[in-house]
Design a protein around this nucleic acid. Structure first.
Lengths: 214, 214
DNA sequence: TTCAAAAATGAGTGATTACTCACTCAACAA
DNA sequence: TTGTTGAGTGAGTAATCACTCATTTTTGAA
C-alpha cells in the first residue's frame, strides 16, 4: 500500500514509501539511511532535508498511520453493522467487517509491523500510538457498544473496552496464525475458521450451564 | 527473572542474562556486544568464546526460552483445572491460571519481547518458535480441550486451536493494555476486569438469542 | 612448585553508520 | 543575459560496529 498524498511533496512521499519498505523488512535499527535513499532513488543527503534525523522518519511513518490508515482500519464499516437489527444480520455483518479488516491489515502490515515493534520498546512511540489511534478506536467502539447494549444484542456486564479488546485480540491472533505461521501449519478452510472465531467472540468457548440466561 | 542453570557455565549464564537485559531494552540490532560485555562484567572477546556470532546469542535466548520457560508458561497448572468438575470450579480455576500466567509473562517479559520482535522479522526465528513452543502448546491444549468437550464444558463445534487462541489472545491483550498502556489509561479494578475477560472468553460478548442452547 | 593447557582479555581491524556541508544546477526575475 | 535562490547532491567525518588474535592470567594435574 502506497503512501497517499497529504500536503506532501513527491520526494517526501517517495522517501516515506521507501522507508516503510526498508524498515519493515529489516527493522528500524538495522535499516540504514543509505539503503532507504537508494530505494527511494534520491541522494542520502536529500533524506535529511525532509527529516531532521532518522528517528524523525519513524515519527513520520507513525503520524501517517494515524492520519490516513487508522480511520478505515477502525471506523469504516462499523455503521453497516450498527444499523442491522436481526441477529443473523449481526453475525453476517461482523463477518464482513472482520474479513475486510483482515484485508486492510494485510495491506498495511509493513507499516503496522514497524509501529508495533517500536511501540514495544519506546514509551514515546506508545504515547503517540495511544493518542492518535487507540483512544480514537475506543471512543468509536464505545458508541457502537452502547448501541448494541440498548438493542439487547451485547452484554452490558462486559465493558466496551473488554468487549472491543476481545474482538481485536481474536482478529489479531487469527491474522498472526494464518499469515506469519501459515507456512508451518496445515491451514483450515478460511471461512469455516472465521465462523468459529466469530462464534468464540460472540458466544464464547464454554457451554453455558443449563438454566443460565446470560 | 534470571537464567537458571542447565549445563551452562557461570560465565555463559552471566552473558545470557546481560544479553537479555540489554537486547530487551534496545532491540537486537541496536544492542551492541560491547554493552552486553560491560553489563555481564566480562571482556568483549569472552562473549565470542561462548557465542560464535551475535546472532548466536539471539538463538541462545530463544532456545533457553523454549527449554526452560515454555513449560511453566504453557503446561503448568492446566491439570489443576483439568480435574475440576463443577462449573464454578472451572471458572475459578481458569481465573487462577490466568492470574498465574500474567505473573509469569510479567517476569519473562524481557525475553518474550525479544523473541516476539525478532519472530516478526525473521522466518527462521519463527520456525524455532513454532517447533519449540507453539506446537507443544497446541498439543497440550488439544488434550485439555478434548477432556473439556467430553465433560460437556466446552463446545465441540469450536476447534481446540481456535479456542486456545481465544484464551491466549484475550490474555495477551489484557497484558498489553495493562502493562504497556497502563500509564496512559485509568485502570479498572484488576479482579473485576479479569472476571469480565473470563466471561468474554467463556460465554462471549453477545447476548444469545432466546431459545438458543449453544 | 612447576608447567602446559584453557580461559580470558582488550587493543586492533575493516566495514558501516547517521549525519554534514561545500558544492552543483535548474528555474525564474529583472 | 545575468543574478538569485534553494532543492538536490555525494564525498567526507567521526563514531561505532561485530569480530579477531596475540598476549596475559588462571587453573589444576603431576
Amino acid at each position: 500500500m502506497q503512501v497517499p498524498d497529504l500536503k506532501m511533496s513527491e520526494k517526501e512521499k517517495k522517501i516515506l514509501d521507501a522507508a516503510i519498505a526498508v524498515i519493515s523488512e529489516k527493522g528500524f535499527s538495522a535499516a540504514s539511511t543509505s539503503e532507504i535513499a537508494r530505494q527511494a532513488g534520491v541522494a542520502e543527503g536529500t533524506i535529511f532535508r525532509y527529516f531532521k534525523t532518522k528517528k524523525d522518519i519513524l515519527r513520520g511513518i507513525l503520524i501517517h498511520l494515524g492520519n490516513v490508515i487508522a480511520e478505515p482500519l477502525v471506523v469504516y464499516g462499523l455503521k453497516k453493522i450498527l444499523y442491522q437489527d436481526g441477529r443473523e444480520d449481526l453475525r453476517a455483518g461482523i463477518k464482513l467487517v472482520l474479513k475486510d479488516r483482515m484485508a486492510i491489515i494485510d495491506a498495511v502490515f509493513p507499516m503496522l509491523r514497524i509501529v508495533i515493534t517500536e511501540a514495544m520498546y519506546h514509551e514515546d512511540i506508545r504515547q503517540i500510538l495511544y493518542d492518535k489511534i487507540i483512544s480514537r478506536a475506543v471512543e468509536v467502539f464505545e458508541e457502537y457498544h452502547l448501541e448494541m447494549v440498548e438493542k439487547g444484542l451485547m452484554k452490558k456486564e462486559i465493558d466496551a473496552v473488554v468487549a472491543g479488546r476481545s474482538i481485536l485480540a481474536n482478529l489479531v491472533l487469527f491474522f498472526v496464525y494464518r499469515n506469519l505461521f501459515g507456512p508451518m501449519i496445515q491451514l483450515d478452510d478460511y471461512d469455516r475458521e472465521l465462523d468459529q472465531v466469530i462464534d468464540a467472540i460472540m458466544h464464547g468457548i464454554a457451554i453455558p450451564a443449563v438454566g443460565d440466561k446470560k
